[in-house]
Design a protein around this nucleic acid. Structure first.
Lengths: 347, 347
DNA sequence: CGGCGGATTGGCAGCGCTGCCAATCCTTGT
DNA sequence: ACAAGGATTGGCAGCGCTGCCAATCCGCCG
């Protein structure tokens, strides 16, 4: 280990020091362009009619003055804002940045801006953040999952703001719902493992009380096993968010505690990757000695020496779809994007 | 592969259908509480003085009416907004969600909201997004790196909005700069490899024209090699963003083209992980046959069967520090958070 | 018991922009 | 040449909330 500390350089010269002259307003532009305020407004929004000459004058004035429209004022004066609030539980698990990515790309194309908030998987925080976001009078809100505090639901309903709930369709939504069935994903995973001949199947998961979608997969998985006349051969829950580390240490703990496991279903790919690393380090042959199955279909799983058996979820698409529906003010609906089982080589 | 499509369920019952009554305003609350508007405003912001009895009346009225303050109006009426714009190049590379995480956590604690924008490593897009964000009159802007279009710089300076530039300190900043020296990181990496006895060192990177920080590391790396009397034994650039995939296929290509390489410096950990996977798949002993060195210090690198040799960067801290400085309206400054070289076991 | 100074309150003018409406200007058609 | 009718424009009242200032209240001192 080596610690590097660079020298502190003197503060850069900045315009910050310049006299804070009064910001340029629409009225200034109007005066400069010798036209009325409403005309400037029309030109800037390309809304309504005006002559080419007027447009040129206004644009020249805007450039000369360095005018930047004030959307705060614009939003207050008109009706809806061009803001969409996005509430996600975490930024650590790559699925949420993926969701954000899909959403921001789509919103950006429609001229909307995203305001984000992170709940850390805490429904009380979610409620507070939703309340806070609503005070910006957003055109819509994107939240994760279908489970919310009663207070959160009440606020959402009362606000009249459009809401899209993402990444889960197992339950009742409030308005727009975009995702896939986590329960069905769990079932499909179990059936796949059973179909491949595994019988001593264990589960390795993270904190399911906070991650309701992982809990639904778990339920579906167990249900499908039961249909096949099987039960879990073992189970380990790490009381923390999912991580590669939890997967690695968790698998070690699971195997130390439970004998004869021939396959492990992980709560997601991060956990599974950790498990795979454990197998590599411990010299456990995959999948002969132990089969691994994940969830999410991350790139990293596809690129492991042996591609990870997993389920690929359309998270980017979910974000994009939700953004599109919200910005188009589409009617309430449930969009099932489905998922895809990737057989891989670890099971 | 198996494709699952769940059934389309009927749209959920929603309050969306309810009559869109006029939203509750401050004036409504004032009337309901039988006090003046300014009094309600003071109570809600706990600003100024008012009696306990008044507070109770107002709070009761707020609860009864389900009033949600309109921050758009509040911001317009007062001066600064409680919004901070965050401009990042990507959400795919985990370092940016990490940065976001640090920033949103700190901002949230100060009652600020984050508006995000993603440039896809395109400086023209950055300029457009900065312009767009500025129209929300944010209290501050967080951008990535020190290199921007002249237009971006002009807009930023002209706006008078506080700006924090993150993740790099090799160059001149506009206002607040929080990060570490990428160049020094590259140098430290080279010196480490040289110190460990490697002499035939190659570089495997991604698109450096867009990722200026990676380019600085590359420059520092080469410079330090030169000081040791060495040059790159080989080099491969994938003309795309960094990814595990690019690292894996890139390393294969690099080794096919260049003989005798004993160590590879990757543009970051994602690339290095891909390279490690290639080694595992190809049966190349690490580090005996080939040493690997990354950049970023991702968790996944620490958990590989052999911990990745890399440099851990304080990205979450950078986000948090920038957020704190901006929300405190601190003076312009350069904060060097340094970095830490992690020797690992792959080099 | 009158007066004083701090504690509470209410009134109201904007913040900068948009929506609506009336006023003007130009084109055509006849 | 004249009027109808569309194309352009400008004026101005808010949007909902905050900041400033004047008006009221109250408790306590002399």
């Amino acid at each position: 280990m080596e610690d590097h500390e660079g020298p502190q350089r003197p503060a850069a010269l900045t315009a910050r020091d310049a006299a804070p002259r009064r910001p340029v307003t629409l009225a200034d532009v109007a005066r400069e362009a010798r036209v009325g305020e409403s005309t400037v407004s029309r030109v800037l929004r390309s809304h309504g009619s005006f002559s080419a000459r007027t447009r040129a004058q206004v644009e020249a004035a805007v450039a000369r003055l360095g005018y930047v429209p004030n959307r705060i004022a614009g939003t207050l004066a008109s009706t809806g804002s061009r803001l969409i609030g996005i509430v996600i539980p975490s930024l650590t698990n790559i699925v949420f940045p993926d969701l954000l990515r899909g959403a921001t790309a789509a919103l950006d194309a429609e001229g909307f801006q995203s305001v984000i908030a992170v709940t850390d998987y805490d429904q009380d925080r979610e409620e507070a953040l939703v309340a806070s976001l609503l005070s910006w009078r957003p055109a819509g809100l994107i939240v994760t999952g279908l489970e919310h505090n009663p207070g959160t639901v009440r606020r959402l309903m009362a606000s009249g703001v459009r809401v899209a709930e993402l990444l889960d369709i197992d339950g009742r939504g409030l308005d727009i719902v975009v995702g896939y069935s986590n329960r069905a994903a769990g079932e499909a995973s179990a059936r796949h493992l059973v179909g491949r001949g595994y019988r001593r199947i264990a589960y390795l998961g993270h904190d399911l009380t906070r991650d309701r979608r992982a809990a639904k997969r778990y339920d579906g998985f167990r249900a499908a096993l039961a249909e096949a006349g099987l039960g879990l051969a073992g189970e380990e829950r790490i009381p923390a968010p999912s991580s590669v580390e939890a997967g690695r240490s968790g698998l070690a703990a699971l195997l130390a505690r439970t004998r004869g496991v021939d396959a492990v279903y992980f709560s997601n790919d991060d956990m599974a990757l950790g498990g795979y690393f454990h197998c590599l380090a411990a010299g456990l042959a995959v999948p002969d000695r132990l089969a691994l199955f994940g969830y999410n279909g991350l790139d990293v799983g596809r690129l492991m020496p042996q591609p990870l058996a997993t389920i690929r979820t359309p998270r980017v698409e979910a974000g994009a779809t939700a953004a599109r529906l919200l910005s188009a003010d589409a009617p309430a609906t449930v969009v099932d994007l489905g998922f895809e089982l990737i057989a891989g080589a670890t099971a």
